[in-house]
């Protein structure tokens, strides 16, 4: 079976109890591209992102309807193991959240629990190199990850995710807690990473979406406060000649 898309959703809806937070999302994400999810705050961007690797399993009262396919397997099917899903779809969070351990351990731990049998030192080095962090930390691998700057911590979190070799990396506003220079480095890194990985990033920063992504999904809430994807297309097109009026208003800053 040939899979054209990295991940594919079909009428995916996310509910909290009786309230529907995200409604009927059907998107097909291209492999080895960066897809940005944009939209006003509260429109369910992060909720949707977390649904992609079943992180919302931990939110009490949250349940998902519809289908989400990774390689022809519905991630919300009965037989699916959420731990396996998260191992294949890694995630980088809004605020850097390294483990309170050494830099080395931050990377080695995920590999170890996932049964990595290779040479750990090499994995750590390669992951750090891929995350463009190696040169800065190679002499202090045994020091606490908390000693790093915010931007370095976030790149460490990316390295940690790369180390378990996922198919897809989800990024939830990964640069929102960082200064402009660190932000730029993360964006450069994303361009590097997309050679090997599919990246889906939530951002509230329009310029970031425009500069860094290949595809953009525009989300908006409807009258029932349920978010949905109103337009999904190549980034170029979204930012130059969007087909939806609301998208145009939003990307040109005329929104609200």
């Amino acid at each position: 079976m040939e899979n054209k898309y990295a991940i594919e959703s079909n009428n995916l809806s996310i509910h909290y109890g009786s309230y529907t937070a995200v409604k009927n999302v059907s998107v097909k994400i291209q492999p080895q591209k960066i897809t940005a999810i944009i939209g006003p705050s509260g429109c369910g961007k992060s909720t949707l992102l977390r649904a992609l690797n079943r992180m919302n399993d931990f939110v009490p009262g949250c349940h998902v309807t519809g289908e989400l396919f990774l390689q022809g397997q519905n991630l919300y099917g009965n037989q699916i193991d959420p731990v396996e899903v998260r191992r294949k779809i890694g995630m980088v969070f809004q605020k850097p959240n390294p483990f309170p351990k050494s830099i080395y351990e931050n990377i080695a731990w995920g590999a170890r629990i996932n049964g990595f049998k290779g040479k750990m030192d090499e994995l750590v080095e390669q992951s750090l190199r891929s995350a463009a962090l190696w040169d800065e930390v190679k002499d202090k691998l045994q020091e606490s990850a908390y000693a790093l700057s915010g931007g370095q911590q976030q790149r460490l979190c990316i390295a940690r995710t790369i180390a378990i070799q996922p198919e897809i990396i989800l990024m939830d506003e990964p640069a929102s807690a960082l200064d402009p220079i660190s932000t730029l480095r993360i964006e450069e890194l994303m361009q590097e990473l997309k050679k090997n990985y599919t990246i889906i990033i939530v951002t509230h920063n329009m310029q970031q979406a425009a500069r860094a992504s290949d595809f953009t999904a525009m989300m908006m809430i409807d009258d029932n406060r349920a978010g949905g994807v109103i337009e999904f297309d190549e980034t170029k097109k979204i930012f130059t000649r969007p087909s939806d009026k609301r998208t145009e208003d939003y990307v040109t800053g005329r929104f609200g």
Binding site: P31, L70, Q79, I80, D81, E84, K88, Q126
Partner: peptide
Amino acid sequence: LNLKTLETQSFRQFDLKKK
């Protein structure tokens, strides 16, 4: 070293069934 030695066939088959 290259983490993604299999990158050319990026979509390896894998099984997400419950263990």
